[in-house]
Design a protein around this nucleic acid. Structure first.
Lengths: 107, 107
DNA sequence: GTAAACTAGTTTATATTACAAACTAGTTTA
DNA sequence: TAAACTAGTTTGTAATATAAACTAGTTTAC
């Protein structure tokens, strides 16, 4: 490993998974969101959404606030500071690959 | 799925895998590269590199040119037009997520 | 002349996943 | 009282990624 791309090997897999990347990107643009909103926005199944949210919570990237609105349970999800930092780190790593270097290789 | 992030579900998994993303990014910046170069640049093990290159070849993203330099086998890998297109598509999809929208959420 | 190091892989085995579907447990509304 | 709702958990399957072991030859150093 001598090139300048070695950084990709340490890419945060928790965030890299498309479903979770979608969720983290979504949550990074709002203060918080509830389960139903994330379900509709993401297009994931309930089970799948639940598992991915759990994974983000385990990683410490997600704060889960469970309350009752009357008798109905209501859960709000929001990124933690750690989650925002991890997302920013992730974007920083991918940025040079996603951005155009503007000098296309001679074909 | 009503939001603007549904595009991520159709993300090209062949390219998304970090090891292959690294390889494709690498190959997109050169005309071609041989096995040893990719091995050193990527930091992957031989078997792993071999498998990932096969997967890219199966997807039609990679052209493999096997020759002999004297009696020693030499293999050159280069992206196909399809591979370059797929990589550009991939970057186009991730771009809005990786780029800063500049308006940070109110914390 | 033979053992080590090289090119360029393939095969195998293990471990981790992602995902959908089925299930749980309760509440509300028609 | 049955259907639809919130908010999940559990389970089973299938696809991965990865490292390690193996193949098959060539070259070089001792």
């Amino acid at each position: 490993m001598s090139g300048s791309l070695q950084n990709l090997s340490g890419l945060d897999r928790v965030i890299h998974e498309p479903a979770r990347l979608m969720l983290v990107a979504l949550l990074s643009s709002v203060e918080s969101a509830d389960f139903l909103f994330l379900l509709k926005e993401s297009g994931l199944t309930k089970g799948n959404l639940s598992v991915h949210l759990s994974r983000l919570e385990e990683a410490g990237y997600l704060r889960v606030d469970k309350t009752f609105q009357g008798k109905i349970p209501h859960t709000e999800y929001s990124l933690t500071a750690k989650g925002r930092t991890a997302f920013n780190e992730y974007r920083k790593k991918l940025d040079p690959i996603i951005r155009r270097h503007s000098k296309p290789a001679k074909l």
